[in-house]
Design a protein around this nucleic acid. Sequence first.
DNA 1: GGGGTCGTACACCGATCGGTTTCCTCGCGG
DNA 2: CCGCGAGGAAACCGATCGGTGTACGACCCC
Lengths: 189, 189
Amino acid sequence: MDTQAKPSPRDRLLDAATELFYREGVSTGIDALCKAAGVSKRSMYQLFDSKDEVMAAALERRAPGYAALLLPAADDPRPPRARVLHVFERLEELSRAEDYRGCPFLAAQVELKDGAHPASVVAARVKQALTDFFRTEAERGGAADPALLARQLTLVFDGASARAGAAGESLAGLVVPTATALLDAAGLR
Amino acid sequence: MDTQAKPSPRDRLLDAATELFYREGVSTGIDALCKAAGVSKRSMYQLFDSKDEVMAAALERRAPGYAALLLPAADDPRPPRARVLHVFERLEELSRAEDYRGCPFLAAQVELKDGAHPASVVAARVKQALTDFFRTEAERGGAADPALLARQLTLVFDGASARAGAAGESLAGLVVPTATALLDAAGLR
DNA sequence: GGGGTCGTACACCGATCGGTTTCCTCGCGG
DNA sequence: CCGCGAGGAAACCGATCGGTGTACGACCCC
């Protein structure tokens, strides 16, 4: 039986990639990655075409869980305002962990300056999904300018992620009030 | 006369470092840097102890000009609100350049995940100076919570920098309204 | 029990990394 | 004119980079 069997090489690889690329940055070497995953380089290159593809796949795999972590449940009956604030409350919570280094997708985009990089494309899509969520809620809540509000909220989210990653600065008491001020200004119910 | 003479090796090195580390990232190699600067590696290592020191020195050198670019003149007689908004107006202007990649100090902090890195220390100091400016103006303008407002404004500034660097997203029409909303919420005159 | 397949271990490739050293050519003061 | 130091070109160092080639062991299905 495999009650305690290890996951597939592919999964081990992506788990290690998620961990290492997030903690050590994109300059993490293939050797270190494979050693951490307990997978030979040979196998890695049969599963993926290149290191870049591993990065992209790792981000891709992380996306659903990340969304589930931040977004309110789809059937959360609260009004748009509360649903939006939920995201920032969760963000503040996450930032309390001492190993929190900001949004991994934003970090990937910043580190890989090339926006055409496969991993950067994935990250952009995830960030766009967040903006889309904000925008939908802004429309539902009757914001004066839903598109603007959505971009503003994403701006705050990314600012918080960047500062958390850069300075390890605490986000407590900062993010939610800021988002609230923007919601107020936009007249979101 | 030296009307068209080249600057000192040190200056050429720091100019090239500023350029390359900003555009290509911290993974830029020493060879590329020295070639771009027209300085031999040997000379470089007589002027600096390590690549890390070059990075730090380049950021250090860039700091005053960066402040001058963003901050209002010290004797700018406008009220605090206008002086704060000046920063964000300048930021929007900068972001119109197609090669703008966000705040170089923030980028350095994000790329070098190690906050103890010499260049990261310099960057943190510069960012703190910006927050201090915001805080001073917030106090002068009678903000309800000057420290909070200062952190919020820095948050927006960094968010804008991160997104500009990551997605090449336009900041036009986004940053100033966001800052304005926060100023309003804080009751800054 | 023989393929076939999957994955590992490991040597290996050329390139590049940060950093050091050697050599040689300048310019400048005596 | 000579001596000397500064600085550039480039070889060199061991390590590591992303990526391959090869050989061998574990397993599975006939």
